[in-house]
Simulated assay, not measured.
Amino acid sequence: MTDTTQTRIRPLRAEDKPYWRKLWTGYLTFYDSSVSDAVYERTFTRLLGDDDQDFHCLIATHREKPVGLAHFLFHRHCWRVENVCYLQDLYADPDMRGKGVGRQLIEAVYAAADAAGAPSVYWLTQDDNTTARTLYDRIGQATNFIKYLRPA
């Protein structure tokens, strides 16, 4: 196992852009997806924004090299007074999987949610993402909800 004392979680910085793009591209590729350059640019701008209603990004670094990311946002919820936190994207470089990066990122999102007064954190994954679900089952609680989308 990798020495996790060498792994740090910190907010995204402007100078992280090429590393962030590579990591997010890896995430999108994992899900057989892609986005336009305009989406990359707009998303990065939003992630660096200072609006609490905007997106947030945490970067995992190992020996100062970015090796993972977590995108999340806070939003209102009709069943709560407090905002809730949606962990939209979580990705660890394939070479770092199984070495604690995903857990550290999720725990950092939990801490950010607590600091923002948003006690509920939730996320989605594909049912066949067994590697990630091994971690998620240890640090989260699966629900029986099924996601629906508007037809294209």
Rank of each mutant, 00 (worst) to 15 (best):
V84E: 12
S34G: 06
L12D: 01
A70H: 05
L105M: 11
C57I: 05
D114P: 03
P18S: 13
D95K: 15
G68E: 02
Q53Y: 12
T29Q: 15
V67K: 12
D93A: 15
W79G: 05
A132T: 08
L12E: 02
D127V: 11
S120P: 00
N83T: 09
T43K: 12
A70L: 04
Y110P: 00
L90Y: 07
W24I: 14
R46Q: 07
Y40D: 06
C78Y: 03
Y27V: 09
T43N: 12
A118H: 05
T131A: 11
D93H: 15
T130W: 14
A112K: 13
C57E: 07
P94E: 11
F30C: 10
Y91K: 15
K17T: 00
L87H: 11
G68A: 04
D52R: 15
R46I: 00
A116R: 03
Y27I: 09
A70S: 12
A115W: 00
W24K: 12
R97I: 07
D93W: 10
D52I: 13
G26K: 11
K17F: 01
D37G: 13
R13S: 01
S120W: 04
L73C: 02
G26M: 08
L73H: 03
A118T: 08
P66M: 04
Q104I: 05
F72V: 01
